[in-house]
């Protein structure tokens, strides 16, 4: 079970604003989902190597070559805010 404070901490980590109603609903829903998930604990998995990928093959590597040219105009076409080629966000103070 996760309480409201934990849900809020997760929402901060995931950068998703939640209102009180959403948080309350999530306490129940995530609780049920985690109950479902807890079923995993019925199986002993000691000594089992985690499987990250269904096909256990090696990484391919690409040659060190420039294949991409400047696409800025095309790629910034639908961007929310740009100026002088930069993407703009509210001022960040470091």
């Amino acid at each position: 079970m996760l309480n409201a404070a934990q849900i809020e901490a997760l929402s901060r980590l995931a950068r998703i604003q939640l209102d009180a109603r959403e948080t309350a609903a999530l306490v129940t829903q995530l609780g049920e989902i985690l109950n479902l998930v807890e079923r995993m604990n019925a199986v002993a998995t000691d000594g089992v190597e985690p499987l990250a990928h269904p096909l256990e093959i090696d990484s391919r590597r690409r040659a060190d070559e420039i294949t991409e040219q400047d696409q800025r105009a095309n790629l910034q076409h639908g961007a929310p805010a740009t100026e002088a080629g930069y993407y703009l966000v509210p001022r960040v103070i470091e």
Partner: peptide
């Protein structure tokens, strides 16, 4: 390297902003 670690965009220093950020670098 001449190209980036996960894309074929150039790593050249000092070019105009975002002219060397390809779709992969932008995380499209």
């Amino acid at each position: 390297t001449v190209s980036k670690i996960f894309s074929g965009a150039s790593t050249k220093y000092g070019t105009a902003p975002n002219t060397q950020a390809c779709a992969i670098d932008l995380g499209l």
